[in-house]
């Protein structure tokens, strides 16, 4: 079997599909990069770099618009059917999820500015470590879901969905730890809201990665996997 974007009688159709497919990967890597840089600014205590991250979000938005135009055009011209139709829908949804990932990354960059641009004392190291751990985790999820999309790899997509429940666990325990910190040292409360928002952003990125994995499974199996139990999805694929 060829790659999903290939083999049409109309060669231009292949090219257009491939363009969209690559556009998703491009947006994906840009979103990943934004996430990585946002976390980096936090670690480097560098509000200037954080502003750079925020302004770069515009590029992501531009790509989002470009992708919208491209697939509207493709629908008009080719009236895609079956897996082409599923691919197009997957792409359109994945792009908007990735754009949201960028938005969340911007929120983290804003967190850096919030924390280090003011005179407030920097937060507890432990708190930042939690953010780093979760960031690495969702970064992995994002990476795997994009790979699953690129390679139409159902097991990898399933992995992402599984990882998402772990992420939920991680998120809840991080929140619990934060609560403990606040109880121990009330002075840290100033940044806690910001940090919670940061954690929340990362948790959302994980959610987006899970959504993308879900679309990939829809693309592969042809049935909607959202709001279904993991066991049923696995049963459907194998």
């Amino acid at each position: 079997m060829n790659k999903i974007t290939e083999g049409h009688t109309v060669k231009r159709f292949d090219e257009e599909m491939l363009f969209l497919h690559r556009l998703v990967l491009q947006i994906g890597s840009l979103a990943q990069d934004q996430l990585r840089r946002a976390i980096q600014t936090l670690n480097d205590k560098d509000p200037t770099a954080a502003r750079g991250v925020i302004s770069r979000d515009q590029a992501l938005n531009d790509l989002d618009v470009q992708a919208d135009e491209a697939f509207i055009n493709l629908i008009i011209k080719r009236q895609p059917m079956a897996k082409d139709l599923r691919e197009i829908i997957t792409i359109s949804k994945a792009v908007s999820d990735l754009e949201r990932v960028g938005d969340e990354a911007r929120k983290i960059a804003q967190l850096t500015i919030q924390i280090y641009d003011t005179d407030n004392s920097p937060p507890n190291k432990q708190v930042l470590r939690d953010i780093n751990t979760m960031a690495a985790f969702v970064g992995d999820m994002l990476e795997i879901s994009l790979t699953a999309f690129d390679e139409l790899d159902a097991p990898k997509a399933l992995d992402v969905i599984r990882l998402d429940s772990e992420l939920e666990e991680e998120y809840r325990s991080a929140l619990r730890r934060l609560t403990t910190f606040v109880i121990e040292d009330a002075r840290t409360i100033g940044h806690m809201v910001d940090v919670v928002l940061g954690l929340r952003a990362l948790e959302r990125i994980g959610g987006h990665a899970k959504n993308i994995a879900g679309y990939v499974l829809f693309l592969i199996t042809g049935s909607d996997v959202r709001h279904k139990s993991l066991e049923r999805i696995e049963g459907q694929i194998i």
Binding site: T9, M81, D84, R86, S223
Partner: peptide, 17 residues
């Protein structure tokens, strides 16, 4: 048939392959 054909030939035909 038009979103998720089961047979490869159907799929190829309706997607223009």
């Amino acid at each position: 048939i038009f979103t998720n054909p089961r047979h490869r030939l159907t799929e190829d035909y309706i997607t223009g392959r």
